[in-house]
Nucleic acid binder design. Sequence first.
DNA 1: GCAAAAGTGTTACCCTTACACCCATGT
DNA 2: ACATGGGTGTAAGGGTAACACTTTTGC
Lengths: 236, 236
Amino acid sequence: MPSETPAAYDPSAYPPFAVTVDLVVLTIRAGALRVLLVRRATEPFAGRLALPGGFVQIDEDLLPAARRELAEETGVRLGRAHLEQLGTYGHPDRDPRMRVVSVAYLALVPDLAQPVAGTDAAEADLVPVAAVEPLDRLAFDHGRILADGLERARAKLTYTTLATTFCPPEFTVTELRAVYEAVWGTTVDPRNFHRKVLASDGFVEPTGETTTRGGGRPAQLHRQGSAEQLHPPLTR
Amino acid sequence: MPSETPAAYDPSAYPPFAVTVDLVVLTIRAGALRVLLVRRATEPFAGRLALPGGFVQIDEDLLPAARRELAEETGVRLGRAHLEQLGTYGHPDRDPRMRVVSVAYLALVPDLAQPVAGTDAAEADLVPVAAVEPLDRLAFDHGRILADGLERARAKLTYTTLATTFCPPEFTVTELRAVYEAVWGTTVDPRNFHRKVLASDGFVEPTGETTTRGGGRPAQLHRQGSAEQLHPPLTR
DNA sequence: GCAAAAGTGTTACCCTTACACCCATGT
DNA sequence: ACATGGGTGTAAGGGTAACACTTTTGC
């Protein structure tokens, strides 16, 4: 906010930018961490995979814009999803059409059972992150944004309780453990994991119900705990 | 990046935004964590304290814009400063003049011995964060940005080696400890701190020189280590 | 009964914390 | 000598990791 312009506030006197939001939507399906990508139908980068996103409206705040795009592209209702700002990307040449600054958001959502159909024409897919083509093949600088989103997601899972946002409304401790194993491709000791999760205050809350959907002895069902706070590092 | 506009790419067809960078510049002086604030000379918010910042130029990337503003406002040369993106603030009403999206950066710098004289006319001051007036008295949404910056800085100091960026090129372990004590207003056991810092690989490197500037037994001098990475949590 | 998954107990080990103690300088 | 801060040794306690073991279901 400079003091260079004492008199008139003519917007056209300042460099005009377009502002977009782009979304790194992560979920877990079939034991794999996946990211929502769309196939671009138009130039530039026609035919290339890209992150979903779109222009911010002139009277719209950034987070609502991201929420709107998430809803439009995935149909996810928001109580169950985590959405946070990831970073802003504004290299002058990132969009060949014009000067665009894009605010990227990171979304962690439970497995979207409904096949994801974007309202925009392009085809949409949940791609396992391990199988995403070389990142520089993505449109714009979306490879970098995706890499940053994955790094952020992995970091936050280690010191927050966010892993529960990948789970359905009711889940077992084993299902929660599967989240960690999917995100890092490692295995975690089930016994120690079980204890740590239950010992961590506000991580999960028992519903009182049980399920045998995993086979074997019935497991307690839990829902997301109240604490979205930091907690002692888990696993790794 | 939508596919809504197949044919012409007329920039004026998209909502026009102004984009600025704002800086949360933190340093430590006289045992207190301080933030660089400027007194606004012009409307809106004339006379109010604000974060330094300014408009991004049309062909300028965001980080260089922040670097430029930092250099212009503080004269800090960049090898010794840490600069990272903090977040982006774009509420439609945050600037009464027009729609402005501001990308905030967080800078951690060693004590700027030279009195900070902004190139922009406004008066500039290093204000102890404990003494900053109520945050909602700052111009625009800068109170929120400052709060977010402080939270980020405290978080990063706990699990990275960034505290060294507050120190002069050569410093003693005790001087580094003073950083932690200033940031949290607590005391830290000097003996255990000493060992932990030296045990943490890449945190600091001994120069071989010693100093008695703190009084008492001469202390080894160190410089910033090579690892700007995560390390086991320190203190607290 | 047997396989499979849920959940508990136990122990070795590591890291942190607290604090006693020694070291090297200025005055 | 003594005050002041720099630096090392050490032992108690808490948390983690490894893994043996018990529980409860389906088939």
